[in-house]
Write a protein that binds this DNA or RNA. Sequence first.
DNA 1: GGGTTCTCCAAGGCTCTACA
DNA 2: TGTAGAGCCTTGGAGAACCC
Length: 324
Amino acid sequence: DARAEQQRYSNGSSFIQCSLESSNVPNDVMQILEGSFSQSTTNQYNTTIRKWRIYCHTENIDYRVPDVNRILSFLTSLCNTGHSYSSVNGAKAGLSTMFSLSHNIRIGEIGIVKQFMKGVYRKCPPTPKYSTTWDADTVLNLFSSWDDNDSLSTKQLSLKLVGLLALVTGQRTQTLSCITVNNIVWGESVQISIDSILKTSRPNRPNPILTLKKYFPNPKLCVVSTLTAYLNRTNSYRGDSLLLFLGIQKPHKPVGAQTIGNWLTYTAHSFRHASTSKVAAKGANVNTIISHVGWSRNSTVFARFYNRPVGKSNDFSEKVLDLP
DNA sequence: GGGTTCTCCAAGGCTCTACA
DNA sequence: TGTAGAGCCTTGGAGAACCC
């Protein structure tokens, strides 16, 4: 069946091993090369190469040969089975990377491939994930209606802390999942540094430092006191775990970005849109927003989606928490 | 029911090119 | 020569399926 077929071509080898299996690259070099891609990229490219191998087996051709016409037929088969431009483009990138390693050929740079991708773009154009965003006040009003932190269940306290952190910092769930208790510095405000490699991490480019201010107008929305309550609550079962967020149920293992995403009432990434949109609408400086959430200095991502008028204030968190 | 894994797809940064 | 925008590759998020 299809599952057995997939298993057969998984073969325990990554796309890099498939690329370099006939070359004499030493194992230790191979390990460094494999580590040059993030896990999600490796997973995605492994999926593409597995499909490519199945396709080549069906067509009785050698999957290691970069035959452009065959590659285009393969990409067409993806397109015809309902895959969007982004998926076809990702598959092309995977094949391009594999053949650049094995044959020093960039599939994506070949003229007919470029033209083909334009055709795919026209046939099934990508659509933005968020054409509108929700009002951040909806979540803030919910948290305001809950009891004091000490009276909340562990589940409520976990959801509240994640929700407030997502809104106040505007960070991805990946970043929130990397917060460790030993990197939280307590002072006038709370500062959290991130050691892990993030999506936007680059050489000579520091990760954003998350700054949490105490919020006095509505104590129930104070992220600092919620964080304190969460640490007190989890202290009894934290053990040696340095990661801030722990599972709600026993054995209370550290949770990953995916689980944190599940905890957020709205879709995880939409918190990033909701908070930046509200702050922009309140008149915050665009450069403040870009640096606060960790986009690159010249990034046009924010401008492409929001592009609000520029104001004078530079306080991100107070504007997010400012209820009407 | 909570948490993890897998696949699909939009988000994101870097580079290059066209054009004013 | 500066800049807007397209192209390309890489990455994490969303959601379904699955496991415990």
